[in-house]
Amino acid sequence: MFAILGDIEFTVAGGITGMEQRGTADWAEHARIQGKPLLEWIGEGLDECNLTIELHPLLGDPEARLRALRESKSKHEPLAFVMGSGEYLGAYVIADISNAIRRTTAVGQLTAATVQLNLREYTGPFTRKVFRPGLLNPALAGTAAAAMGSPGLLSNVTATPSLTQTVIGQAKTAGNMLRAGQNLYESVRNGNPSMILGQVPQLLGVTARAIAPLQGMSAAAGLLDDGSDLSRLSESVLGSVMGARSSLNPVDLGNIVDRFAASKDSLSQALTTMDGASTRLAGLAAQVLTRRA
C-alpha cells in the first residue's frame, strides 16, 4: 500500500502514479527608508499534497472510484493521511479534484481517466476515525484490483479512535507547535534587547500551545501496554517547554538577552527530544495502518 487517506487506500497497483508535496512559510514585507524591505516571519503555511491517480477497469470501477473521492470531498471532513511506511503526515482535507477523461464507452460511460487530487493540511481539532479491518467497498467486489489484493477503497465503517491514534495525533500537534516556536525564536534572536522584550508575549503564547497536546500525549501513552517510554518522553519535553517559559517570566531590559538565550536552549532541547521519538511514533503509525492498533 502506498498511502491511506481516511478510509481511502492508494496503491501503486491500484493506479497511484505520482505524488507532489509542497510546504510554504508566510512572510510579511515591511518597507524601510533608504534600504531594502525587511521580511518578518508570520507563520507556517499549510502543507499541500497532489496525487495523480489513473482510473481503469482493471484497477476497479472507474466511475465508482471517482464518485467515492467526490463524496469524500463533499463531506468537508479532515482525514488522517498515513504513508505506507507508517509515517503519519497529519490531517488533510480534499480541496480539489480534477479528472481528464481518456476513454469512454459509446454511451459515455467512463472507462479510463487521470485524476488529480489536491490535499491541504488541516490544523484544527482532529480525532482520527478508524474503520473495521477486512470490509472492502462492495463497488470493487469481483474486480481485478480486488483479486490482486489492491482494492483501492475500503468501507466507510468507523470506530472509536484508539489510544495509539490519540498518542500519534497529540505528538504530531505538539511537534508542530514546537517547530512553530523554534521558527519564532529564530526570527527574534538577532534583534536588539528592546525588540526581543517586545516579542515576549508572542514567545510565551507559542510555547503555551504545546502544553495541552504534550499532556494529552502523556496521558494516552500511559494507558498503552508499551507506552511508558512515550509517557516519560512527553513529560521530559513538557519539562523543557515549561523551562523555556519560566526563563521569560519575569524579564526586563537588563536581563532579557540572557533569559531569551536560556529559553531558546530549553525549547531546542524540547524539540530535539521530541524528534528523537520519530522512529517510535512511525512504528505506532504502522500498527494503525495495518489495523493492529
Rank of each mutant, 00 (worst) to 15 (best):
K73P: 10
V241F: 10
N99W: 12
Q170L: 00
R103S: 14
L79G: 06
I42C: 06
T52D: 15
A112Q: 12
N183F: 06
A91R: 00
D265C: 01
D96R: 05
G23A: 14
N118T: 14
A293V: 03
R103H: 15
P125F: 02
K73A: 13
L197T: 00
G239K: 03
L214T: 06
A147Y: 09
G15W: 04
L153Y: 10
A106R: 12
T11E: 11
R132G: 13
T290W: 05
Q287F: 02
G134K: 01
S266V: 00
A174Y: 02
T207F: 09
D61T: 13
L289S: 08
C49D: 05
S231F: 01
P213S: 02
A31L: 05
A208Q: 14
S247D: 14
A139M: 12
T127N: 04
V93L: 05
T24R: 03
A261Y: 00
T127W: 01
R245W: 06
R209W: 04
E121R: 02
Q182M: 13
T105V: 09
R259W: 02
L89M: 04
S218R: 07
S194L: 03
A112D: 06
D61G: 09
G198W: 00
L197F: 02
G45I: 03
S247Y: 05
T127S: 10
G18C: 06
S194A: 13
T160Y: 09
L5Y: 14
T123M: 04
A68E: 15
V251L: 01
P250L: 00
T272N: 06
D252K: 07
K73D: 10
A3K: 08
R102K: 13
S72M: 08
R259G: 05
G276T: 04
